[in-house]
């Protein structure tokens, strides 16, 4: 058992060199790598957080958009329905008018037809009357008077 002063001094120098080496060439690179990895992990977690938040935002936005689209679709549908009803209504009135017009025209035709028939009838009745009258007259009038008249006519010619 012995403590030796030169040994102690030599050992201290060696120790000093080792500590210096550790401090300069061992500790900094490793702690730097560790710190960088820590930073990386922190960044990764933050990015994941951001991603989750973005997803949430996006889904909320899409929900909103979907809702808007749905209301819009509803509006469009309502407008279309309204327009269709309007068109049907219009068509109905149009058809009614047309029908009325046709009926009126038909009435007119019938009226005209009636008038025409009436005219025709009147004409025929006239002729019949004349024929009837002629027949009556033929029996009543004597031939002599007629011969006179005919003669007179013939004389004029």
């Amino acid at each position: 058992m012995q403590a030796s002063i030169p040994s102690i001094v030599g050992q201290m120098i060696v120790f000093g060199i080792f500590v210096w080496f550790t401090m300069k060439f061992v500790w900094p690179p490793i702690t730097k790598a560790m710190e960088e990895r820590r930073q990386k992990i922190a960044d990764g977690l933050a990015a994941a957080d951001r991603g989750a938040r973005a997803l949430q935002d996006a889904s909320a936005k899409s929900e909103e958009e979907l809702k808007a689209a749905r209301t819009q679709a509803q509006e469009i549908l309502a407008a279309a329905n309204k327009q269709a009803a309007q068109m049907v209504e219009q068509a109905k009135t149009h058809a009614q008018e047309e029908g009325e017009r046709i009926v009126a025209k038909a009435h007119e035709e019938v009226e005209r037809e009636i008038a025409h028939a009436r005219e025709e009838l009147r004409k025929q009745v006239g002729e019949l009357a004349v024929i009837g009258a002629a027949k009556i007259l033929k029996r009543e009038i004597d031939t002599k008077a007629h011969a006179d008249v005919l003669n007179e006519l013939a004389a004029r010619v």
């Binding site: 012995q2 403590a3 030169p6 040994s7």
Partner: peptide, 25 residues
């Protein structure tokens, strides 16, 4: 053989400890 030696270098201690230190480093 003094308890506290002023001149003896403990070469075994120096050698082994330096080698171990170099292994570590």
């Amino acid at each position: 053989n003094a308890f506290i030696s002023a001149e003896a270098w403990h070469l075994d201690t120096l050698f082994i400890s330096t080698v171990l230190g170099l292994i570590f480093l």
